[in-house]
Amino acid sequence: MLKGAQVRYLMKESFAGFHRRKLTTGVTILIMGSSLLVLAVLTLATLNLDHLLAKARSSIDMRVFLLESLDPGQVAELQPRLLVIPGVKEVKFISSETALHEFRTSLGQDAGVLDFLETNPLPASYHIQFTAGARNLDSVRQIRDEIAAWPEVAEIIFNQGWVDALEGWSARFRMANLITGLIVFIAVVFVISNTVKLTMAASSRLIQIQKLVGATNGFIRLPFLCEGMLQGVLAGGLAMGLVAVASSFMQNRLSGMIFFSVEQIAGFIMFCMVLGLLGSWSAMRKYLTLQSEL
Protein backbone atom coordinates (compact mmCIF):
# COMPACT_ATOMS: atom_id res chain seq x y z
CA MET A 1 0.00 0.00 0.00
CA LEU A 2 1.45 3.35 -1.02
CA LYS A 3 2.00 5.98 1.64
CA GLY A 4 1.09 9.67 1.19
CA ALA A 5 4.67 10.73 0.47
CA GLN A 6 5.02 7.96 -2.11
CA VAL A 7 1.80 8.96 -3.89
CA ARG A 8 2.99 12.59 -4.01
CA TYR A 9 6.34 11.43 -5.36
CA LEU A 10 4.72 9.25 -8.05
CA MET A 11 2.43 12.06 -9.21
CA LYS A 12 5.35 14.47 -9.27
CA GLU A 13 7.50 12.03 -11.24
CA SER A 14 4.76 11.38 -13.81
CA PHE A 15 4.45 15.09 -14.59
CA ALA A 16 8.19 15.66 -14.27
CA GLY A 17 8.70 13.24 -17.18
CA PHE A 18 6.57 15.58 -19.32
CA HIS A 19 8.40 18.64 -18.15
CA ARG A 20 11.90 17.19 -18.68
CA ARG A 21 11.16 16.04 -22.23
CA LYS A 22 8.75 18.67 -23.48
CA LEU A 23 9.66 18.29 -27.15
CA THR A 24 9.62 14.48 -27.26
CA THR A 25 6.36 14.37 -25.33
CA GLY A 26 4.82 17.11 -27.48
CA VAL A 27 5.74 15.33 -30.72
CA THR A 28 4.47 12.02 -29.33
CA ILE A 29 1.13 13.56 -28.40
CA LEU A 30 0.84 15.17 -31.85
CA ILE A 31 1.58 11.88 -33.67
CA MET A 32 -0.79 9.96 -31.46
CA GLY A 33 -3.39 12.72 -31.72
CA SER A 34 -3.32 12.55 -35.54
CA SER A 35 -3.73 8.78 -35.53
CA LEU A 36 -6.57 9.03 -33.05
CA LEU A 37 -8.12 11.84 -35.11
CA VAL A 38 -8.58 9.45 -38.04
CA LEU A 39 -10.24 6.98 -35.71
CA ALA A 40 -12.47 9.66 -34.17
CA VAL A 41 -13.58 10.95 -37.61
CA LEU A 42 -14.44 7.46 -38.82
CA THR A 43 -16.26 6.68 -35.60
CA LEU A 44 -18.28 9.90 -35.92
CA ALA A 45 -19.11 9.08 -39.55
CA THR A 46 -20.29 5.60 -38.53
CA LEU A 47 -22.30 7.12 -35.72
CA ASN A 48 -24.03 9.51 -38.12
CA LEU A 49 -24.71 6.76 -40.64
CA ASP A 50 -26.18 4.61 -37.89
CA HIS A 51 -28.35 7.55 -36.88
CA LEU A 52 -29.56 7.99 -40.46
CA LEU A 53 -30.12 4.27 -40.77
CA ALA A 54 -32.17 4.19 -37.58
CA LYS A 55 -34.32 7.03 -38.94
CA ALA A 56 -34.68 5.28 -42.29
CA ARG A 57 -35.59 2.03 -40.60
CA SER A 58 -38.26 3.70 -38.51
CA SER A 59 -39.84 4.97 -41.72
CA ILE A 60 -39.82 1.62 -43.53
CA ASP A 61 -43.34 0.89 -44.73
CA MET A 62 -44.98 -1.08 -47.54
CA ARG A 63 -47.75 -0.50 -50.04
CA VAL A 64 -49.64 -3.60 -51.21
CA PHE A 65 -51.56 -2.78 -54.42
CA LEU A 66 -54.57 -4.94 -55.11
CA LEU A 67 -56.01 -6.27 -58.34
CA GLU A 68 -58.74 -4.04 -59.75
CA SER A 69 -60.97 -7.05 -60.26
CA LEU A 70 -61.45 -7.66 -56.51
CA ASP A 71 -64.86 -7.00 -55.06
CA PRO A 72 -65.18 -5.08 -51.73
CA GLY A 73 -65.75 -8.29 -49.79
CA GLN A 74 -62.48 -9.82 -51.02
CA VAL A 75 -60.64 -6.56 -50.26
CA ALA A 76 -62.02 -6.46 -46.71
CA GLU A 77 -60.97 -10.08 -46.11
CA LEU A 78 -57.35 -9.19 -46.71
CA GLN A 79 -57.03 -6.82 -43.75
CA PRO A 80 -57.24 -9.44 -40.96
CA ARG A 81 -54.95 -11.74 -42.95
CA LEU A 82 -52.34 -8.99 -43.16
CA LEU A 83 -52.64 -8.14 -39.47
CA VAL A 84 -51.83 -11.66 -38.30
CA ILE A 85 -48.51 -11.72 -40.16
CA PRO A 86 -45.69 -11.51 -37.54
CA GLY A 87 -44.01 -8.08 -37.67
CA VAL A 88 -47.02 -6.23 -39.05
CA LYS A 89 -48.09 -3.48 -36.66
CA GLU A 90 -50.73 -1.51 -38.52
CA VAL A 91 -52.68 -1.94 -41.75
CA LYS A 92 -54.56 0.93 -43.37
CA PHE A 93 -56.81 0.60 -46.40
CA ILE A 94 -56.42 3.23 -49.09
CA SER A 95 -59.16 3.15 -51.65
CA SER A 96 -58.45 4.14 -55.25
CA GLU A 97 -60.42 7.35 -54.66
CA THR A 98 -58.38 8.26 -51.59
CA ALA A 99 -55.18 7.46 -53.49
CA LEU A 100 -56.23 9.79 -56.29
CA HIS A 101 -57.12 12.50 -53.79
CA GLU A 102 -53.72 12.15 -52.09
CA PHE A 103 -52.01 12.25 -55.45
CA ARG A 104 -53.94 15.37 -56.45
CA THR A 105 -52.97 17.04 -53.16
CA SER A 106 -49.32 16.13 -53.66
CA LEU A 107 -49.33 17.66 -57.14
CA GLY A 108 -50.54 21.01 -55.77
CA GLN A 109 -50.88 23.59 -58.55
CA ASP A 110 -50.22 20.97 -61.22
CA ALA A 111 -53.20 18.90 -60.10
CA GLY A 112 -55.10 20.12 -63.18
CA VAL A 113 -53.39 17.54 -65.33
CA LEU A 114 -55.47 14.86 -63.62
CA ASP A 115 -58.67 16.41 -64.98
CA PHE A 116 -57.83 14.89 -68.36
CA LEU A 117 -58.08 11.35 -66.96
CA GLU A 118 -61.30 9.57 -67.91
CA THR A 119 -60.92 6.83 -65.29
CA ASN A 120 -59.02 6.57 -62.00
CA PRO A 121 -55.82 4.64 -62.79
CA LEU A 122 -54.74 4.22 -59.20
CA PRO A 123 -55.54 0.84 -57.62
CA ALA A 124 -56.73 0.34 -54.06
CA SER A 125 -53.98 -0.62 -51.66
CA TYR A 126 -53.08 -1.49 -48.12
CA HIS A 127 -50.46 0.64 -46.32
CA ILE A 128 -48.53 -1.58 -43.92
CA GLN A 129 -46.40 -0.36 -40.98
CA PHE A 130 -44.08 -2.67 -39.10
CA THR A 131 -43.23 -3.35 -35.50
CA ALA A 132 -39.80 -2.05 -34.32
CA GLY A 133 -38.35 -5.57 -34.39
CA ALA A 134 -39.37 -6.10 -38.01
CA ARG A 135 -37.93 -2.82 -39.34
CA ASN A 136 -35.04 -4.45 -41.10
CA LEU A 137 -34.50 -5.60 -44.63
CA ASP A 138 -34.61 -9.30 -43.90
CA SER A 139 -37.95 -9.22 -42.07
CA VAL A 140 -39.53 -6.84 -44.56
CA ARG A 141 -38.38 -8.98 -47.50
CA GLN A 142 -39.81 -12.06 -45.82
CA ILE A 143 -43.16 -10.35 -45.30
CA ARG A 144 -43.11 -9.07 -48.89
CA ASP A 145 -42.45 -12.56 -50.24
CA GLU A 146 -45.30 -13.98 -48.19
CA ILE A 147 -47.80 -11.38 -49.37
CA ALA A 148 -46.59 -11.43 -52.97
CA ALA A 149 -47.71 -15.06 -53.21
CA TRP A 150 -51.36 -14.08 -52.61
CA PRO A 151 -53.43 -14.06 -55.84
CA GLU A 152 -55.26 -10.85 -54.83
CA VAL A 153 -52.04 -8.80 -54.86
CA ALA A 154 -51.00 -6.89 -57.98
CA GLU A 155 -47.77 -5.23 -56.78
CA ILE A 156 -45.81 -4.47 -53.64
CA ILE A 157 -43.48 -1.53 -53.17
CA PHE A 158 -41.32 -0.36 -50.26
CA ASN A 159 -38.36 2.02 -49.87
CA GLN A 160 -35.83 -0.77 -50.31
CA GLY A 161 -33.20 1.07 -52.34
CA TRP A 162 -32.60 3.79 -49.80
CA VAL A 163 -32.39 1.40 -46.85
CA ASP A 164 -30.24 -0.97 -48.89
CA ALA A 165 -27.72 1.76 -49.68
CA LEU A 166 -27.57 2.98 -46.10
CA GLU A 167 -27.07 -0.50 -44.71
CA GLY A 168 -24.30 -1.10 -47.24
CA TRP A 169 -22.51 2.12 -46.31
CA SER A 170 -22.95 1.47 -42.64
CA ALA A 171 -21.39 -1.99 -42.99
CA ARG A 172 -18.48 -0.57 -45.01
CA PHE A 173 -17.86 2.17 -42.45
CA ARG A 174 -17.98 -0.33 -39.64
CA MET A 175 -15.38 -2.46 -41.37
CA ALA A 176 -13.20 0.60 -42.12
CA ASN A 177 -13.58 1.65 -38.52
CA LEU A 178 -12.52 -1.75 -37.28
CA ILE A 179 -9.46 -1.89 -39.54
CA THR A 180 -8.48 1.71 -38.76
CA GLY A 181 -9.06 1.03 -35.09
CA LEU A 182 -6.67 -1.91 -35.22
CA ILE A 183 -4.01 0.05 -37.11
CA VAL A 184 -4.37 3.03 -34.76
CA PHE A 185 -4.26 0.69 -31.78
CA ILE A 186 -0.95 -0.82 -32.91
CA ALA A 187 0.48 2.55 -33.98
CA VAL A 188 -0.40 4.33 -30.75
CA VAL A 189 0.85 1.49 -28.55
CA PHE A 190 4.07 1.46 -30.58
CA VAL A 191 4.58 5.23 -30.36
CA ILE A 192 3.88 5.35 -26.62
CA SER A 193 6.03 2.30 -26.04
CA ASN A 194 8.96 3.98 -27.77
CA THR A 195 8.47 7.25 -25.94
CA VAL A 196 8.36 5.46 -22.61
CA LYS A 197 11.49 3.50 -23.60
CA LEU A 198 13.22 6.82 -24.25
CA THR A 199 11.99 8.14 -20.92
CA MET A 200 13.23 5.00 -19.19
CA ALA A 201 16.60 5.18 -20.91
CA ALA A 202 16.88 8.80 -19.77
CA SER A 203 15.90 7.71 -16.26
CA SER A 204 18.19 4.68 -16.15
CA ARG A 205 20.22 6.04 -13.23
CA LEU A 206 17.07 6.79 -11.27
CA ILE A 207 15.76 3.28 -11.95
CA GLN A 208 19.09 1.75 -10.99
CA ILE A 209 19.17 3.63 -7.70
CA GLN A 210 15.55 2.76 -6.99
CA LYS A 211 16.42 -0.92 -7.42
CA LEU A 212 19.47 -0.60 -5.20
CA VAL A 213 17.54 0.92 -2.35
CA GLY A 214 14.87 -1.76 -2.55
CA ALA A 215 12.06 -0.30 -4.63
CA THR A 216 9.69 -2.91 -5.94
CA ASN A 217 9.19 -3.17 -9.69
CA GLY A 218 5.64 -1.95 -9.18
CA PHE A 219 6.86 1.23 -7.52
CA ILE A 220 9.39 1.84 -10.31
CA ARG A 221 6.80 1.20 -13.02
CA LEU A 222 4.02 3.40 -11.70
CA PRO A 223 5.33 6.82 -12.84
CA PHE A 224 5.96 5.45 -16.35
CA LEU A 225 2.50 3.89 -16.49
CA CYS A 226 0.97 7.18 -15.35
CA GLU A 227 3.02 9.05 -17.95
CA GLY A 228 1.81 6.73 -20.72
CA MET A 229 -1.80 7.06 -19.58
CA LEU A 230 -1.48 10.83 -19.43
CA GLN A 231 -0.06 10.92 -22.96
CA GLY A 232 -2.97 8.77 -24.14
CA VAL A 233 -5.53 11.04 -22.48
CA LEU A 234 -3.94 14.21 -23.91
CA ALA A 235 -3.69 12.72 -27.42
CA GLY A 236 -7.30 11.51 -27.21
CA GLY A 237 -8.39 14.94 -25.94
CA LEU A 238 -6.55 16.61 -28.81
CA ALA A 239 -8.20 14.34 -31.41
CA MET A 240 -11.62 14.82 -29.85
CA GLY A 241 -11.15 18.60 -29.67
CA LEU A 242 -10.24 18.77 -33.36
CA VAL A 243 -13.24 16.64 -34.32
CA ALA A 244 -15.49 18.85 -32.19
CA VAL A 245 -14.26 22.01 -33.93
CA ALA A 246 -14.62 20.44 -37.39
CA SER A 247 -18.06 19.05 -36.62
CA SER A 248 -19.33 22.41 -35.31
CA PHE A 249 -18.50 23.87 -38.76
CA MET A 250 -20.13 20.92 -40.49
CA GLN A 251 -23.28 21.09 -38.40
CA ASN A 252 -24.07 24.50 -39.92
CA ARG A 253 -24.07 22.92 -43.38
CA LEU A 254 -25.34 19.42 -42.72
CA SER A 255 -28.59 19.54 -40.82
CA GLY A 256 -29.30 16.51 -38.69
CA MET A 257 -25.62 15.73 -38.12
CA ILE A 258 -25.00 14.42 -34.63
CA PHE A 259 -21.89 14.59 -32.39
CA PHE A 260 -20.60 12.21 -29.70
CA SER A 261 -22.50 12.11 -26.42
CA VAL A 262 -20.66 12.90 -23.17
CA GLU A 263 -20.52 9.16 -22.42
CA GLN A 264 -19.06 8.43 -25.84
CA ILE A 265 -16.41 11.15 -25.42
CA ALA A 266 -15.54 9.73 -22.00
CA GLY A 267 -15.37 6.24 -23.54
CA PHE A 268 -13.05 7.44 -26.30
CA ILE A 269 -10.74 9.15 -23.82
CA MET A 270 -10.76 6.03 -21.66
CA PHE A 271 -9.85 3.98 -24.72
CA CYS A 272 -6.90 6.35 -25.39
CA MET A 273 -5.86 6.05 -21.75
CA VAL A 274 -5.85 2.26 -22.02
CA LEU A 275 -3.75 2.54 -25.20
CA GLY A 276 -1.27 4.69 -23.26
CA LEU A 277 -1.22 2.18 -20.45
CA LEU A 278 -0.59 -0.72 -22.84
CA GLY A 279 2.17 1.21 -24.59
CA SER A 280 3.95 1.92 -21.32
CA TRP A 281 3.46 -1.64 -20.14
CA SER A 282 4.93 -3.16 -23.30
CA ALA A 283 7.95 -0.83 -23.00
CA MET A 284 8.60 -1.88 -19.44
CA ARG A 285 8.22 -5.62 -19.83
CA LYS A 286 11.59 -5.81 -21.53
CA TYR A 287 13.29 -3.03 -19.62
CA LEU A 288 12.55 -3.79 -16.02
CA THR A 289 14.11 -6.86 -14.54
CA LEU A 290 15.51 -7.44 -11.10
CA GLN A 291 19.03 -6.62 -12.26
CA SER A 292 20.29 -3.35 -10.90
CA GLU A 293 23.57 -3.46 -12.84
CA LEU A 294 25.77 -3.03 -9.81
Partner: peptide, 29 residues
Amino acid sequence: YVFQDFRLLDDRSVYDNVAFAQLVVGVKS
Protein backbone atom coordinates in the same frame (compact mmCIF):
# COMPACT_ATOMS: atom_id res chain seq x y z
CA TYR B 1 25.65 0.53 -1.39
CA VAL B 2 28.54 2.88 -1.94
CA PHE B 3 30.20 3.15 -5.34
CA GLN B 4 33.33 4.64 -6.82
CA ASP B 5 31.20 6.92 -9.06
CA PHE B 6 28.86 7.90 -6.18
CA ARG B 7 25.68 7.32 -8.26
CA LEU B 8 23.79 10.31 -6.97
CA LEU B 9 20.81 11.79 -8.82
CA ASP B 10 22.23 14.90 -10.49
CA ASP B 11 18.97 16.84 -10.63
CA ARG B 12 18.17 16.46 -6.95
CA SER B 13 19.61 18.12 -3.88
CA VAL B 14 21.72 16.25 -1.33
CA TYR B 15 18.68 16.15 0.95
CA ASP B 16 16.45 14.72 -1.78
CA ASN B 17 19.06 12.14 -2.74
CA VAL B 18 19.14 10.80 0.79
CA ALA B 19 15.40 11.15 1.39
CA PHE B 20 14.79 9.25 -1.83
CA ALA B 21 16.09 6.01 -0.28
CA GLN B 22 13.54 6.38 2.52
CA LEU B 23 10.71 7.40 0.24
CA VAL B 24 11.14 4.34 -1.93
CA VAL B 25 10.74 1.99 1.03
CA GLY B 26 7.67 3.82 2.30
CA VAL B 27 8.91 5.67 5.40
CA LYS B 28 6.50 8.35 6.70
CA SER B 29 7.25 11.98 5.74
